[in-house]
Design a protein around this nucleic acid. Structure first.
Length: 330
DNA sequence: GTTGTTTGACCTACA
DNA sequence: CTGTAGGTCAAACAA
């Protein structure tokens, strides 16, 4: 699954053209899937085109650590009843081709089991927001799913917190929740940010108010911020709670660019699945690492070659980024 | 009886 | 201080 399934949750809608899809994921704690508004330029791919998929699939990787990139029937829940687009088709979307329409009825089939615990009408928009949390016993991963009020069109998915377990193998037979998958606390992803996990002392907090692994989000900013945050955390529960709230706002301001600045773990994970933050889905690897001598410098290495055209970046009309240009030189 | 969803109420942050 | 909005809780309900 991964990128595929996540994007599958995007429902194109005639009233609300989708011209770009952003999936920005923080491998450490959260990810965002947002369907942004049209980019007027690019080919008007019908009414609801998905012309660009910008994916930083860290959370996806986290979600499906041991699943092959290929679609796994086991991990495709009920949503099947609805016409399901093959993600591979995305790249073939032509000007005369609409993105397959998907009605988003269930939480994203991301391999995990989510329980809805709330729903809210979003005032600022015509959408309502559903709140889900992972059903796994000690997992505090959450996600918000925002969708168009009348059309049920998916507008945005925001993942918060990280799973501390593997995704259940058999979604459909997952009756005895919390039992399947011996959730190795901290599997593959844990090793990536051990320093971040350490400070999480949720056990000492009231379950309701615990921080739920908020710490990792700080990595979306910079290390200094992170340090500051850790220091504050030591002040106590309330401070953490405030911090948590503050971070929620951060979630909404995340941009792909920001993610690129983030620890290389994100990109490395993405590379394993052949998915990169630039929207490509072919088996091309993109290795990103911060220059040791200059933290503001990032070294990006591409392995392989994209076998398709470059997705149209939103709000970008110029030539491909320098990064991609470099890639073509290979 | 168990598990998940719905939904109104409550709490908190923020302007 | 007050109103608003976002996030969560928990009782009621459904499957």
């Amino acid at each position: 699954m991964s990128h595929q399934d996540v994007v599958e949750t995007v429902a194109a809608h005639d009233e609300c053209p989708i011209s770009s899809v952003d999936l920005t994921a923080d491998s450490v704690s959260q990810s965002i899937l947002s369907v942004s508004r049209p980019v007027p330029s690019q080919q008007s791919l019908g009414d609801c085109p998905i012309s660009f998929v910008d994916l930083i699939p860290a959370s996806v990787v986290q979600a499906m650590p041991s699943v092959s990139p290929q679609k796994s029937p086991e991990l495709v829940p009920e949503v099947n009843s609805l016409s399901k687009p093959e993600m591979g088709e995305q790249k073939t979307l032509g000007p005369d081709m609409k993105a397959t329409q998907v009605v988003f009825k269930a939480p994203t089939p991301d391999g995990y089991n989510w329980r809805k615990y709330g729903q809210k009408q979003v005032k600022s928009s015509e959408s309502n927001r559903s709140y889900y949390r992972c059903t796994y016993i000690s997992c505090h991963a959450k996600k918000k799913v925002e969708r168009c009020d009348h059309s049920s069109r998916l507008v945005e998915i925001i993942y918060k917190g990280r799973h501390n377990h593997d995704p259940p193998r058999k979604v459909r037979s997952f009756k005895g929740r919390k039992l399947i998958s011996s959730a190795e606390s901290g599997g593959a992803t844990a090793t990536l940010d051990r320093s971040v996990q350490k400070p999480v002392k949720s056990d000492s907090f009231k379950l309701k108010k615990e921080t739920r692994n908020v710490m990792p989000k700080q990595q979306l900013h910079n290390l200094n911020e992170n340090v500051k945050f850790k220091a504050k955390e030591a002040l106590g529960h309330e401070t953490i709670e405030k911090q948590r709230k503050r971070e929620r706002n951060v979630v909404f301001s995340i941009t792909p660019i920001k993610t690129v600045k983030e620890p290389k773990v994100v990109v490395q994970a993405a590379g394993d699945l052949g998915i990169s933050s630039d929207g490509y889905r072919s088996p091309v690897r993109k290795h990103v690492e911060r220059a040791s001598e200059d933290a503001s410098t990032i070294i990006i290495t591409y392995e392989g070659k994209h076998d398709h055209d470059m997705p149209v970046p939103k709000k970008r009309h110029g030539p491909p980024s320098i990064t991609l240009a470099a890639h073509k030189q290979n």
